[in-house]
Write a protein that binds this DNA or RNA. Structure first.
Length: 297
DNA sequence: CGTATTTGACCTGCGC
DNA sequence: GCGCAGGTCAAATACG
């Protein structure tokens, strides 16, 4: 019963955070609109009014966001305190079960507000909060023995191992871009289809992607995005499928997820940065002045 | 010469 | 307690 209560609370808080981030993005959209001067609102007064309104709204939302985040964090720690047995169960899960969970699609995304099961859902959630595991499938040249998946991040290989259930070796990588980044990656050829590389990511990067250009190379190499519109990725539907059918999985490759925490950090820092808002106001006023001059000519 | 990769040894946890 | 398997370490090696 108490679990259901916290379950609702955490879901509710997560959804609130997501909603607030989306609302905050309205201001950034307005900035982009002003920058390219494609905004349908041609009246500077209307724009200024809208900007001021957005600014006030943004301040309030930022405050709310911080409050919600603090409550969320305290709730999260409270839940973990209340469920020591659950935490132990989670931590003591055998490696084999963990591996099976990964292989069989019991893979957890970063969207912590998406839960489906009711029995033991909270226990699983505790693990989801601690680790994020994602899998990607990359089409590769079978003649190429290297286990290289270009995803735009910098990786350092620290080990290679042949596993029992797969004749091809598994390569272990760490993120080398930032020493504080603890993201790990495992790359192994699919046992069923050697032309497919299976990349398993553990953790979330605490830095921005070093090179978007490099990421695009992944597309050349064979990673197929989930949607052509670049929609925000969610938990891969493949994760609920049965094991070992890589061939069917390939056409539904997803791109790395946008890190909600990074988005939150960026939005938060931008909205709290007085110099940013000052520069923004200066840029907008400059645009308005330019527009007035053009109108008078 | 500095950095990245390779690879055998070692560690850890689980099942029997 | 022992063996097995996955994961990690670190010295040796390769490479630009």
């Amino acid at each position: 019963m108490i679990y259901n209560f916290f379950d609702y609370q955490i879901n509710h808080q997560s959804l609130s955070i997501t909603s607030l981030i989306r609302t905050n993005s309205r201001m950034l959209k307005l900035v982009i609109c002003l920058h390219y001067w494609d905004c349908p609102l041609k009246q500077p007064d209307v724009l200024m009014e809208e900007l001021n309104r957005m600014r006030m709204e943004n301040k309030q939302l930022t405050k709310m966001l911080l409050i919600v985040w603090e409550k969320y964090s305290s709730l999260q720690s409270h839940v973990l305190e209340l469920t020591p047995k659950a935490s132990e169960d989670v931590c003591s899960e055998s490696r084999k079960r963990k591996a099976e969970g990964e292989d069989c699609g019991n893979v957890l995304g970063t969207n912590a507000n998406i839960y489906s099961n009711s029995d033991g859902g909270l226990f699983k959630r505790a693990r989801e909060i601690k680790t994020s595991v994602k899998r990607f499938y990359v089409r590769a040249d079978p003649s190429d023995a290297s286990l290289v998946v270009k995803d735009g991040y910098q990786w350092r290989k620290y080990g290679q191992k042949v596993t029992k259930d797969n004749p091809s070796p598994r390569a272990y990588y760490r993120c080398s871009f930032s020493p504080s980044c603890s993201v790990k990656r495992k790359v192994q050829r699919s046992a069923e289809d050697p032309t497919v590389l299976v990349a398993t990511y553990e953790g979330v990067h605490n830095h921005l992607q070093p090179s978007r250009a490099d990421a695009s190379l992944g597309l050349i190499q064979g990673v197929i995005p989930a949607t052509a519109t670049g929609s925000v990725p969610t938990i891969d539907s493949r994760e609920n499928r049965s094991c070992g059918d890589a061939r069917k999985l390939v056409p539904e490759i997803e791109v790395p997820a946008v890190n909600p925490f990074l988005v939150e950090q960026m939005v938060s820092s931008l909205t709290r940065n007085s110099s940013f808002t000052a520069a923004l106001a200066a840029a907008i006023s400059g645009r308005i002045l330019d527009y007035d001059l053009m109108e008078t000519l």
